[in-house]
């Protein structure tokens, strides 16, 4: 996909990932380790100012992609390019850490209970020495708290004094502290109630517009991902199955897995729901330690043939800007 767009100007994509692999050794017995292929040969690009949604079921490797992208794990294989620069060396990482940040899923465990809100938000500022002097630092903390809709008078409070939605705002303020261009949002609204979810989603969208941010939005709730994303990528067992614009992917999914995934989303409308043709997949997702040969989805796919077991399908452009990895299309 993006790897063959050599002719295009590099500036279109802020982040480019090619043939990314992330394996973890797992102990499977006495003196025996097996490689868990959390991410296996994934390539994609994220355009400047866009939101790329990443969906998939638990254990499909979407969180690992997000973390590896930020070099929180050193990739087993593959390259990550950020703004035309290859990420990996010590020097490149130092600058990269300022420009790329992360918002975590659980607003309870991702904030240090012993630190005040001001110190949590200011941590990136302190680490990267972004503010000279105490007053500038304090002014910046106030600015950030206002930006995410927190009361600046609460700067001396501790995280446990806030509700889930407010904690997530603290996490977002911290991510914004170093003026990043790129933010990986790892299930930022999954732990929140519906009414609060909408508040945080709207805020993320506003911040994107105001600060020109680029997001990788990881979530399992497809209706939320569709709402916030320009394009969506679907993952299954460490492989990328399909990548297309949000409307195209939800309206005209091509990969058999995406098709069944879309049909399984419960529609909050009783009449539509009664009409809905569910394609219920048989069985469970195989263990990531025992990924089937060839196409990882073939064990649950109704269209699986001999070819699927022998060869893993490559990502192909099925229609303009719609990439799919399946032998049968």
């Amino acid at each position: 996909m993006e790897r063959n767009q050599a002719g295009k100007p590099a500036s279109e994509y802020l982040v480019q990932v090619s043939h990314l692999k992330q394996y973890f050794p797992v102990s499977t017995g006495f003196l025996k380790t097996t490689m868990l292929k959390a991410v296996d040969d994934v390539s994609f690009g994220i355009r400047r100012g866009e939101t790329l949604g990443l969906v998939g079921e638990s254990g499909c490797g979407k969180t690992t992609v997000g973390r590896t992208l930020l070099h929180l794990y050193t990739p087993t294989e593959g390259e990550i390019w950020f703004d035309g620069e290859k990420i990996g060396s010590r020097e490149s990482l130092k600058n990269f850490r300022k420009r790329a940040q992360m918002v975590f899923q659980d607003p309870y465990s991702s904030l240090n209970p012993r630190m005040t809100v001001a110190d949590i938000v200011a941590e990136p500022i302190d680490v990267h020495k972004l503010c000279a002097g105490r007053e500038a630092r304090e002014a910046r903390i106030r600015e950030l708290m206002t930006l995410v809709g927190l009361n600046t008078e609460h700067a001396t409070r501790y995280a446990h004094e806030f509700s889930g939605g407010q904690r997530q705002r603290i996490g977002i303020a911290r991510a914004l502290a170093s003026n990043p261009e790129f933010i990986v949002c790892d299930e930022p609204v999954s732990a929140l109630d519906v009414s609060i979810q909408a508040q945080v989603i709207n805020m993320l969208e506003e911040l994107q517009e105001r600060l020109g941010l680029t997001y990788l939005f990881i979530a399992h709730d497809i209706s939320v991902v569709k709402h916030i994303s320009n394009r969506i990528a679907v993952m299954y067992l460490g492989h990328m199955m399909e990548l297309a614009s949000a409307n195209e992917l939800t309206g005209h999914p091509l990969h058999p897995y995406t098709v069944s995934l879309m049909s399984a989303v419960p529609i909050p409308d009783p009449k539509e729901s009664r009409k809905q043709q569910r394609i219920v997949l048989e069985g469970d997702v195989p263990s990531p330690l025992k990924v089937p040969s060839g196409c990882p989805f073939r064990t649950r796919c109704s269209r699986a043939t001999k070819e699927c077991a022998e060869r893993c399908p490559e990502m192909r452009e099925a229609s303009p800007d719609h990439f799919v990895a399946c032998h049968h299309l």
Binding site: S58, V280, L281
Partner: peptide, 9 residues
């Protein structure tokens, strides 16, 4: 997960 949710429902 959604596909398992559909099965259980």
């Amino acid at each position: 997960d959604v596909t398992i949710q559909a099965q259980i429902l």
